[in-house]
Amino acid sequence: MATTLTEEQTPPIDAMEVVYQRPEALTDVPTHYCPGCGHGIAHRMVGEVIDELGIRTQTIGVAPVGCAVFAYNYFNMDFIEAAHGRAPATATGIKRVFPDRIVFTYQGDGDLAAIGTAEIVHAAMRGEKITVVFINNAIYGMTGGQMAPTTLPGMKTTSSPSGRDVEATGQPARMSELLATLPGAAYIVRRSLHNVREIRKARKAILTAFKVQQAGLGLSMVELLSSCPTNWGMTPSDAMKWVEENMVPVYPLGDYKVVDAVRDL
C-alpha cells in the first residue's frame, strides 16, 4: 500500500539522499515507447550497467530498425543506426577498427531473428567480441504487429489473423538455443522483463555480458522476453502476465552458453 508522508515527516531537500536517478548513459529525453513497453526497461538497465562499468565514453552503440530505431536519441554515447538486421555486421566493423572500445547492438526479434539471422549467426560464428541486447516481443512492433519468426503457435497478429499456423510457418525461432551451438559465442542467456525479480536477474546478465566483452571472450548476448501491449491488444499489466504465462514456457529462461572463463569475471 502506498504511504504518503505528512509535511512534518518529509525531510528538507538538502537532507535527502538521491537513491534513484537517470543514469548518465541515458539522455534526458522522453522516449516514444508505449506505456508498458519493455524497451524502456531494457534501455534503463543497459544505461545503468554502462554507468556501473564506467564505460560510457568508451562505448559505441548500434541501433536496430524496429521500435528502438531511435535508441540513439536515448543513449548518451556515440551511436550508429544500422540497416534492418545488419547491426552485428556494423558492430563488427566498429569493433575491429577500435578493439579497445565497447560495442553493443540493441535489436528486436524482427531485426535479429528474421531479416538479420545471417548477420547474427555469422557474427557468433566468427566470435566477434561484441555484446547483443536482444528484445524478443514475439512480434514486429514498429510496423503494426505482424507475425515474426518468434511469434507463438496460434498467436494472432495482423498477418496471422487466425493465429500462427505452425504447419505453414514453422515453430518459433529460439535464437539463444541456436546461437549457443556456435563456438564463437561465449555468453548466451535468456531473461525476462515481466516482474521485478526477473528484471533484476536480467540486469545482472547484461552486466556480465558487457564484462564478457571487456575480457574479450567472444560474442555475448542477453535475450530479453519483453512486452508489446499495443500490438498484443492488452493492458500493460496483462501484457506482463502474458509474457510469464505464454512466452516463458515457449522460451525457457536460463543460461544457454557460459564459457568457463565467464565464471572468473
Binding site: R56, T57, Q58, T59, I60, A63, V69, Y72, F75, N76, M77, D78, F79, I80, E81, I94, F98, R101
Partner: peptide, 16 residues
C-alpha cells in the same frame, strides 16, 4: 566519427 564520446558530446551516424 564514432570513437567513443570522450570529452565531447556524442556523435550519431544515421540516415533515418
Amino acid at each position: 566519427a564514432l570513437t567513443g564520446a570522450e570529452g565531447r558530446t556524442p556523435n550519431v551516424v544515421t540516415s533515418l
